[in-house]
Nucleic acid binder design. Sequence first.
DNA 1: GAATTTTACGAAAACGGTTTCGTGTTGATA
DNA 2: TATCAACACGAAACCGTTTTCGTAAAATTC
Lengths: 338, 338
Amino acid sequence: MRRKITLKHIARELGVSISTVSKALKNSEEISRDTKDRIQAFAKLYNYKPNNIAISLKNKRTKNIGVIIPNIVHHFFTTVIRGVEKYANERGYNVIVCLSDESFDKEVINMEMLANGSIDGFIMSLSTETQAKNDYNHIKEVTSQGIPLVMFDRVTDEVECDKVIIDDKVSAYKAVKKLIDSGRRNIALINTENLSVSNARTEGYYQALQDGGIPINKDLVLTLPFESIDEAAIQHFFDTVSMDAVLCVNEIFAIYGMRVVQKKGLKIPEDVSFIGFTDGPLSKYANPSLSAVAQHGESMGAIAAQMLIDKVENEEEEEVYRTEILDSTLIERESTVN
Amino acid sequence: MRRKITLKHIARELGVSISTVSKALKNSEEISRDTKDRIQAFAKLYNYKPNNIAISLKNKRTKNIGVIIPNIVHHFFTTVIRGVEKYANERGYNVIVCLSDESFDKEVINMEMLANGSIDGFIMSLSTETQAKNDYNHIKEVTSQGIPLVMFDRVTDEVECDKVIIDDKVSAYKAVKKLIDSGRRNIALINTENLSVSNARTEGYYQALQDGGIPINKDLVLTLPFESIDEAAIQHFFDTVSMDAVLCVNEIFAIYGMRVVQKKGLKIPEDVSFIGFTDGPLSKYANPSLSAVAQHGESMGAIAAQMLIDKVENEEEEEVYRTEILDSTLIERESTVN
DNA sequence: GAATTTTACGAAAACGGTTTCGTGTTGATA
DNA sequence: TATCAACACGAAACCGTTTTCGTAAAATTC
């Protein structure tokens, strides 16, 4: 077991000082060609690589970025991570992933753990619990220490920092408008409690109906607890309410809704159109395939990473925060008529 | 912007030495009650937290574990990460995720980056390119430095380390046997090139046919390039070959296959049964829902993390390596008859 | 009251690097 | 030949901890 070699080893072995070795390996002008050659050859032979931790301590830079997300078993977050990872890697950063599991406490613990020197900055999306509690002190604590933060998707106005989001209201608006334009009048909505993005989508839904001159009917809105598939509630909803289109704030609700509707002998999209939020494999491979609002998670992740690293590397910039609003795309598939 | 406070600050502020502060905060017997109280109160007031990097350097322990996977936009790997993260977190470790993107080069770069002190050990699953190349020097390099490694799912005999896998051969065998027992005779297989797990599953498929007294017909096997959905090839396969059951080495092939079969007017499962590998949301929400071999990624991740951390923390144990073989479960849904 | 033991703290080394500054040798210049 | 700059290198500080060891002063013992 060859243990990692250090500058000290090389110095001792070659009878020079540590500083000389360090300089030689950086090809410093201060060191003679001869000595540099000897040292570089030796280092190469023993595959010397500087210790990241020591460098981090010296530079007060870890080249790690912390990503805190509520859930990783969720296609959207997964694509965001991929975007972050790809971009960060290109700029020489590693990504430490922490899952809050939609829990406030875990979010706090994870942030505190990473904030003590492990990372240069955070990228995060709020847990539902945090959004419900509306308590952001742990986050303010971190930003007040000067640690850069970029929030994405599930954000809050309570914290001043860079943000990258899609305009959920406009996205929902456009989706509903599409349904109206294709002649639908009884448009239902299945949404979720306590979630910033769900609320924004709901606003867009109402706005589109209003602008389309369609009276609002609260019976057409089914609100479910966070992403729990309450099968009975969904069944009951479709049994008691009649509609010709449904907008769902997530994929699962839509997929499950389509099942129920099909079981009732209705045709999709002829009798009922469906549009889901957050395009993922489920939408793509559903039968019929599901029209969906694509959020482009990978770009979102890459942009968040770029904003973060730019801030990390530009020391003492003026404290000005940006909110980047990304376009969403309505991907039309079999569950809607063209 | 309150910058992070250090021992040095506290020491200067209170007119004591750094060592005294350090000891006081650890409640050392060496320090008088009075002094300890003063220091602890001060530290609490300014929310002192020791710097992780400095501790890592001192202890030669980072409390980070590196996870290298080919792809994160893949439900199975996602569940594994979740398992790793949950377990690791409980034991006070953070998880650094790197994606090889199925590329040999990225796998090498990521490992080298992390191996220079950033992590205490690795958990990894091989990229297809690495498996195709059959070159594991980067991995041997790391293990020879004494860095603990646990491989999962896509493993190789070429590297000596702990492993955690499911018995893909047996799993496939059981799935095919199930099909045979339900009366199917023309059982097709859709697999993929250059992938250890796909090969093992293929072996199980052949073995089950043989043991079931069913002659092997190579026409019933369609081999596709890695996870690319060659729609034309799949279409052609189902157009030219007739079968009454299909085993697929991944979800996507199965889902897509079911589509093609349904479009041809055949009924699932009456005319053709389908079983997929790696149970995920796609299988669960497919229409009809897809029977699948569940790999229990989350347990796999948790077990891998446990093996790794145990090794990391048990310094100089005898070098004995274990391979943990997990049971898979055939989850029967609508795509097979009971 | 002298010798010894506690008590309570500080100095310094160590982890593995980087970097500033000082200095003994050269070789060139006047 | 005396002076001085250039060269090539080493000492030491520093990043933020932990930990060993040394030591004044106070307390105890005889």
